[in-house]
Design a protein around this nucleic acid. Sequence first.
DNA 1: TTGTACGCGTTATCAA
DNA 2: TTGATAACGCGTACAA
Lengths: 350, 350
Amino acid sequence: MKKKKKRNSRKSLKRVTSKGIASRVGVSVMTVSRALNNRPYVGERTRRRILKVAKEFGYSPNHIARSLVMQRTETLGVVVPEISHSFFPEVIKGIEQAAYSAGYHLILTHSAEDEAREKDVISTLESKRVDGLLISTAQTVTSHKTYLDAIRMGTPIVFYDRVVTDIGASCVGINDEECCYMVTDHLAEHGYKAIAHLCGPASVSIGRDRLKGYRKSLSRRGLKLRPDLVIRSGFSEEGGYAATQTLLRLPQISRPDAIVAVNDLAAFGAMRAIAEHKLRIPEDIAIVGMGDVAMAAVVSTPLTTIQQPAFEIGKTAAETLISEVEGRTKPGKRIIIGARLAIRKSCGCS
Amino acid sequence: MKKKKKRNSRKSLKRVTSKGIASRVGVSVMTVSRALNNRPYVGERTRRRILKVAKEFGYSPNHIARSLVMQRTETLGVVVPEISHSFFPEVIKGIEQAAYSAGYHLILTHSAEDEAREKDVISTLESKRVDGLLISTAQTVTSHKTYLDAIRMGTPIVFYDRVVTDIGASCVGINDEECCYMVTDHLAEHGYKAIAHLCGPASVSIGRDRLKGYRKSLSRRGLKLRPDLVIRSGFSEEGGYAATQTLLRLPQISRPDAIVAVNDLAAFGAMRAIAEHKLRIPEDIAIVGMGDVAMAAVVSTPLTTIQQPAFEIGKTAAETLISEVEGRTKPGKRIIIGARLAIRKSCGCS
DNA sequence: TTGTACGCGTTATCAA
DNA sequence: TTGATAACGCGTACAA
């Protein structure tokens, strides 16, 4: 047993490897491997001795080496468009729970709503050989090539919330069209006539589908769709604020009497703009959002919105992905998570 | 060149390796490695051909293999006690930004405020051979052994927000004692006499230090410290609610006229309890928090609190860790991020 | 400028 | 029940 203490590049103790344990116990690495992984074909006495030495030396199995030979990392890559949107932390929590119980880890990345950056993080995620990808698309995406490439190279994707339905990947989210129809119709039902919509980009599923739902309600209610009342706000507070400014600059006569915001954040921005114009909610303008982030219920005029079960979306998405990674199910599912209307003050319908 | 197409365990295309590219281009793997990493000693023509083939085959460098030989993963492990606390997503965003610009990735884990789970995630993080650890301790931790072991095995730790100062690791956070002194003193200065404190566990730095700050203010103001007014709430809304219930069950005469909550979440819980008792804030009971989460400013009675720059804490913590990982600085720093008092309605001092 | 041999820490395979 | 050997995909050291 020649034990040369060669490289000492790191200042600290070199970590024990299975080989190190093997030589200390006087067995081969394979026996150590078997003992450490609770595999059969190891004598009970040998196993105990190995476990003892392993603990004694603070052995930590090297997942990197394991991943290399196993061709699996037991790691999921998560792409979040904007960590600050309080919807997403809740989704992440759901993802984390599902991953943790299944023994998977999470590499978290942030696209910052930027297509180029999204592409970049996906590519590094592939380099890290994650077993699968959980993606909510950035606001500025136009091409799906990055996704397609990843899938083609064997990294399954499950989209959550902002989904891409036409490339064979599974998708988990609410029924955006139906939900936006619900909120819009709630307003229409209560007599609002000039209902505006702060919409998201058409390239993003929830932007597109929610707009559809808005339109459907107007058309069913026999209300005319006024293009000047459909303004692109995007998903941010600032976007909602700016879009609403535009609406409020319309001549008094053609101003909306209600606003359907694509999400709660945009609704908050709208509320801020409305407040600055010294208008009252809902008396002068009613407003509804979608998402039901925690703040929606506690702002000065509580926001009527769609309760979107973020945790469940994350959990379901992760479970779906893991199941596909392990070959138990096939990709291409479209999973709809139930959502419901939360009626509060901002719509003035109570 | 014998090319046996052996294993095809995964259904999809086998990913190209540097060897694959090498044989296609007709050079050795080393030349490929050099070309792909922009290293010298590669003919310009050869380099271009290699790059072309690499792109053509969608080559993705295998970080796993790279990490194994380099003994570095360029990955940081992040432990978050509770993802839902809106303070933490903001911290994560800061961490992510610093990590991304330095070329590091993040493995995100969740201790769920539980010591055993924290130990578990740290151990798997070590197995994944992260280059360093960013930790905010769970509420229930009592022992620091796990941290010490990690450090001893060569994985540096930087604590953020909830720190551990006595084990040689760097810490990044606000000056908790000073800040809690500030809020408490703000109340005392305005004539409140029976100031209660909803405190965190003494085993967690911010619980301990904030209690100290509270005490300091009382003692300097000549107010008696009443043990019945110091109640353990922990860091959650529910905890704040329960603790406040206890306070409100005190005989009228000994009830507090103000409450210093260990954080905003506990303060929200307190507000809920107070509202249920049909008491007014701040007329009947004033309340202040710490943290300044987004909701603090928008709840019906806006909360006076300490503005804690979460993003900056995360960014600084990550930068500090990366710098230590790369051997540019030594561990053991105590970095204080500035915070200031945000006076709003809940303290009744305006 | 390019290539060869070896090692990183682990698991699978097959022989002992 | 155990062990020797060959992968896994890449980088380092040194030879050509």
